[in-house]
Write a protein that binds this DNA or RNA. Structure first.
Length: 467
RNA sequence: CGGGGUGUAAUUCAUCGGUAGAAUGCUCGGUUUGGGACCGAGAUGCACAGGGUUCAAUUCCCUGCACCCCGACCA
């Protein structure tokens, strides 16, 4: 689609209209012809590639190897773990016809790969010497979501899913912890998105798992998005799929497992969090184009100077906008919309002075200095801004009245004592729409009273309106 | 999957029971260019799909589908 920023709704007025428009106008994504599907255009896929590169390095560094498992899962396999299949059943896409004939056994398009990977693990793992199994895969999965949203919730999405099997629970739990911390690092250092690491409640945890660690991100309108998760699967799947090994004493043991996933949803969160009325603002580390050089005129010497400059910026990802027939103002607006972190203008003035006019996308400030350093500064400032927002919108409440009042007027994270009884959780959700997001990992044990029922509560949980 | 809304050019929309129009975008020519330039000439439509009603449907009705908004589900 052609570029027209005039059509961009104001972020400050309507976040979802702004988001939908900006993603299309900035040419990050487009709608696919089938329901709920999306096309990742080069500008959008480029962001994912940068995230992948950074994360893949971390994954491999920790000893996990990449592999690939099939897209289709025989339906019977899905049914091995009861809670798992029940949790995913409403979201499955199932192939019933192949080669023009009705299939004897229907094939589920993977919504996640636990079952198909673990049937192989069951064969691969025999001895304590075969452990740990440390495997990750970068792939696509399909979940038939009722309500879709570009990047944030699509029928098919891209992600990585790590699946490890260990001899002991402790070792598996370490990996679960490692996963969420690695994700938090990517979110903070690359996407400039601070969040809260915590444990999911019983009702919110992964279907078939024992415990789920999550990274929860506060979005601009005060709703909270589950950024990614790392699950302690205990022995649920190993018992269901008979993944056993003989230990050093010759005893048969079930393995302890974990899985952890990080999806293209992260891009959506990042786009929504940063940006303003003029368009996107990409954190430099995940911006496919980190700096754009705009020749002010189409004069040959100006174009030559712009091209020369682009060659002098080392490994900065830079683009020179030599497109004809667009005025300076038009180009500036175009690149602002696309969120390129730094704009460099090259014209007669710059050629005379030898100093290029550089403008930061995030603040609009005119800056001087070395490009690499400026980009690092932008990255840091963008994170700091989000951290401030997160801190300012985390509200501790003493009683239920305050809870309701905060949900109605401020939203954001609400920190309150909860007795961990599912009934209180459900009631709170029904009455205020706020659900438990997590028990932060750094929460201290205290003696308090549940904000809802007044019974003994040990911890302050985080509640929020979920995305 | 429940409630609401919308489907007309690439996009945003107008129109009208008698088979379509604007703005933006696109193409060409020219003049321009320091925060969305201008003039001129063009190209672009099975009016979402299928069924009705009607002499005649893009328009009215039904069904389906898609998209958007609000719920429930969710990385």
């Amino acid at each position: 689609m052609a570029f027209t920023k005039r059509q961009l709704p104001k972020k400050s007025e309507s976040l979802s209209d702004w988001y939908n428009a900006v993603v299309l106008l900035a040419e990050l994504a487009d709608y696919g012809p089938a329901k709920g599907t999306m096309i990742f255009r080069p500008a959008g896929y480029g962001i994912w590639e940068l995230i992948q590169q950074a994360m893949d390095k971390e994954i491999k560094k920790s000893g996990v190897e990449n592999a690939y498992f099939p897209l289709f899962i025989p339906e019977s396999l899905m049914h091995k773990e009861k809670e798992h299949v029940e949790g995913f059943a409403p979201q499955l896409a199932v192939v019933t016809i192949g080669g023009g004939e009705e299939l004897k056994e229907r094939l589920v398009v993977r919504p996640t790969s636990e079952t198909i990977m673990y049937q192989a693990y069951a064969r691969w793992i025999q001895s304590w010497r075969d452990l740990p199994v440390l495997i990750n895969q970068w792939n696509n999965v399909v979940r038939w979501e009722k309500r879709t949203y570009l990047f944030l919730r699509t029928t098919e999405f891209l992600w990585q899913e790590g699946h490890c099997a260990h001899a002991t629970h402790e070792e598996s739990q370490e990996r679960v912890q490692w996963g969420i911390e690695m994700y938090a690092k990517i979110y903070k250092d690359f996407l400039a998105l601070p969040g809260v690491i915590g444990t999911k409640s019983e009702s919110e945890k992964f279907a078939g798992g024992d415990a789920t660690l999550t990274y929860e991100i506060l979005m601009p309108e005060g709703k909270v998005l589950q950024g990614c998760t790392s699950h302690d699967l205990g022995q649920n799947f190993s018992k269901a799929q008979n993944i056993k090994f003989q230990d050093k004493q010759g005893q048969n043991q079930f393995v302890w497992q974990n899985s952890w996933g990080f999806s293209t949803r992260s891009i959506g969160a990042m786009l929504m969090a940063h940006g303003d009325d003029a368009g996107l603002t990409l954190p430099p580390k995940v911006a496919p184009t980190q700096a754009v050089i705009i020749p002010v005129t189409q004069d040959e010497e100006v174009l030559a100077a712009a091209k020369k400059l682009s060659g002098e910026l080392g490994d900065v990802r830079v683009k020179v906008d030599t497109r004809e027939g667009e005025s300076l103002g038009f180009k500036i607006n175009k690149w602002e919309l696309r969120g390129v972190p730094l704009r460099i203008e090259v014209g007669k003035q710059e050629m005379a002075s030898g100093k290029f006019r550089m403008v930061r996308r995030d603040t609009g400030e005119v800056v001087e200095g070395e490009v690499k350093g400026i980009l690092d500064q932008i990255q840091d400032d963008m994170l700091a801004k989000q951290e401030k927002f997160l801190a300012e919108n985390t509200h501790e409440v003493a009683d239920y009245e305050q809870f309701k009042e905060t949900m109605e007027n401020k939203r954001g994270f609400i920190k309150a004592f909860w007795c961990e009884n599912a009934e209180c959780e459900t009631r709170i959700k029904e009455e205020t729409k706020a659900s438990t997001r997590c028990l932060p990992v750094d929460a201290k044990e205290e003696s308090g009273k549940c904000v809802y029922c007044g019974k003994v509560a040990k911890y302050k949980w985080l509640f929020a309106l979920a995305y």
